[in-house]
């Protein structure tokens, strides 16, 4: 994201609230914001290559973003010390983790997880969304992040208003800024945390093509944010993401098994390589069995999913003005 003035920050908050409440934003305000050239939705999709499958060590120059479906993260796991200590160690590998499948009546569960993570002196914190789902059984999304390296706020976090009810669990969207002394222009980004219904994954992933495009336009118009990253458990591999790729101009970073049994690609991190210039090319799956040197049976006590991750630079890399001219705004339907 480029630098935002106090006025545009206020507009960001207002629009975030409006979007959350399902109201129409003020067109005059949108027009004012839209005067900024929008680099989103470039006509020529850019290909993306990942270089490394090994999780790099955390470093000052980079940020590690992850997604982790902690299968039925509820009371049974919260009351198991071995499970909580191992989940905490997973979280400590990353700067930000998007979590799916929080299924707990006890709303202290994320605070309990963060307490385990911080047991060795860390400064992790969390954001959590509302309970979601069409059936009686509900789920929540969450973000756990290292507050010594990442800044965020509930003010910049919202649940998508899914007017047409295309998604079982509407994504939780949050904005983040890297806290770093290495640059005066730290990387800013928005994460879109999603868990599809396995029985309707194809339809939901198709629908996300248009929805992600709208989110990207909204994030850019309201906060000049061009780095919008979709991540989560999509229950679908890249071969089922053609609409997501053509409509939203994004590419999945992973095409390898992401579950503990290593036989299906469920989870992914999806970026627009044309705007997300901070991506280092490193992305992969962190295998729980390898990380802890444990059996498949023990790994399944943690989750049936492995975390997936991607690495980014801490400094904002913006398109130059010539490139921005070539990528004119396109807010209408394609």
């Amino acid at each position: 994201m480029q630098k935002a003035s106090a006025a545009s920050t206020l507009a960001t908050i207002l629009l975030g609230l409006l979007f959350n409440a399902g109201c129409e934003p003020d067109p005059a305000l949108l027009n004012e914001i839209a005067k900024v050239s929008n680099p989103i939705a470039s006509a020529t999709p850019v290909s993306v290559k990942t270089k490394s499958k090994q999780l790099p060590a955390r470093a000052q120059e980079t940020v590690l973003v992850a997604s982790f479906n902690i299968q039925v993260f509820g009371e049974s796991k919260m009351n198991d010390r071995w499970v909580m200590e191992h989940l905490a160690e997973v979280i400590r590998q990353f700067d930000v983790v998007a979590i799916q499948e929080v299924r707990a009546k006890d709303q202290s569960i994320l605070q309990t997880l963060v307490n385990f993570v911080n047991a060795n002196g860390g400064r992790y914190d969390y954001l959590i969304g509302p309970r979601l789902g069409r059936s009686v059984s509900k789920e929540q999304y969450a973000y756990v992040y290292d507050s010594s390296r990442i800044i965020t706020s509930n003010e910049y976090t919202y649940t998508l208003n899914d007017d047409i009810d295309a998604l079982h669990r509407e994504p939780l969207i949050a904005r983040f800024v890297v806290r770093t002394s290495l640059t005066a222009n730290p990387w800013t980004f928005s994460l879109v945390n999603l868990h599809t219904d396995p029985d309707e994954a194809v339809q939901e992933v198709d629908a996300m093509g248009g929805i992600l495009r709208e989110i990207r336009n909204f994030e850019f118009m309201s906060g000049r944010e061009d780095d919008v990253i979709l991540l989560g458990d999509l229950n679908a591999g890249p071969e089922k993401m053609s609409k997501l790729q053509t409509l939203a101009g994004c590419r999945p970073l992973l095409n390898e098994p992401t579950n503990v049994r290593e036989n299906a690609v469920y989870d992914n991190i999806i970026i627009d390589p044309g705007t997300n210039l901070e991506f280092t090319g490193n992305a992969g799956v962190l295998k729980l069995r390898t990380l802890f040197n444990i059996s498949e049976e023990d790994a399944l006590k943690l989750s049936d999913h492995n975390p997936v991750w991607a690495e980014f630079l801490v400094e904002e890399r913006s398109l130059n003005s010539q490139q921005q001219m070539a990528n004119q705004p396109n807010y209408g339907p394609r």
């Binding site: 009371e75 049974s76 299924r103 396995p198």
Partner: peptide, 14 residues
Amino acid sequence: DESLAAWATEALEN
């Protein structure tokens, strides 16, 4: 109980 129902849901999903 909600905790059991959550695991039951997961079993049916899979």
